[in-house]
Amino acid sequence: MNPITYFANPTHFNRLAGWLMPVFATGAVIAFAAGFYYALFNSPPDYQQGETVRIMYVHVPAAWVGMGLYMAMAAAAAVGLVARHTLADIFCVAAAPVGAVFVALCLATGSLWGKPTWGTWWAWDGRMTSVLVLFLLYCGYIILRHSFDDDERGAKASAILLLVGIVNIPIIKFSVEWWNTLHQPASLLRMGGSAIAPDMLRPLLIMGAGFMFYAGYLVMLRMKTVMLSRKILRLSEGE
């Protein structure tokens, strides 16, 4: 049995979603409860940054999810172009706004974190600049995807864009970080250094799990919505 064709069938997909969505929702609630407890009450303040380091527990997982969803979308786009299946496109259409919102959350929290740490809302830090570019890639995808009257052509064009984008992300990241080392004074604090205390790692990972469950739940929900709205469109056109 080919899993792609199996779950592309709306009935099968709905059965999978009906089973997965409660799991994701429960996982998200539990992980968020535990994560917020550890992040806010049961982890040490940073020896340099003090209490503001707690922003990290939202900022970093949001970046993970934003990046992970983009990679998943690119993988789905590749499958969609090869296997010519609409489920891949439905996944991308459903996941793009979710990913964009998480990336925006990452940018907003990064900016809030930057003010007390660097004394400025935006410092053109290498990582933050890469995230900003990722946000632009999401925007480009969403607008391109919805610019076509014909769904099939829009799906193909935007899938090609995703693939070109995923190849370019490492190049963009490399160039931005290389540029950053040229211009950034070394005295600035870097976010999330390599060595992180275990007391901080625990809430970070739990929050990461919570974000992933929550994103999974949202994407599933949106996939169902997209499928239903396409069905409505088909029925209203009398086919």
Binding site: L136, G140, S147, R153, I160, L161, V164, N168
Partner: peptide, 23 residues
Amino acid sequence: ALTVALHRNAALLTLLLVPFYIP
């Protein structure tokens, strides 16, 4: 090529290209 089928594409073209032009 991705936007040629769309009629008014100048702004979209800029949005699509800026991330790739940065490096």
